[in-house]
Amino acid sequence: MYSDAHLVVMRTARPGGIMIAGEIDISNTAAVAASLRDEFDGGTDPHLDLSRVSFVDVSGIRALVGLALQMAPNQRLLVHGLAAELETVLKVTGWADLPGLELCSCAGEA
């Protein structure tokens, strides 16, 4: 779906969703956000596997939050495998409690 020197975005079959591997910062946030937007177009709760993401900056988290804010009222973005330090970032930036975003603690098995 998208790749650069430090990042790959790909579809996963079970469960249906997207896996990202690599590092997200301002050099590729816009591209990542665009590829995610195209993919999640309503329907079931989308899964996003970040267990192979070694870094997300605030711009990347902002993109995920933007995606979560676009979810339908009964839909949630299920995020798997976010590193503990990055979960802290999500909390202290005030974004941990969005209704459209759920952090799953299933060791990134998406």
């Binding site: 605030v58 802290t88 970032v89 202290v92 974004w95």
Partner: peptide, 19 residues
């Protein structure tokens, strides 16, 4: 200033102070 949920509000230096 604690950032609100508005995605566009600045967060970098706030984050630095929390970390």
């Amino acid at each position: 200033e604690a950032p609100g949920p508005d995605p566009s509000s600045p967060r970098g230096l706030w984050l630095a102070n929390q970390l």
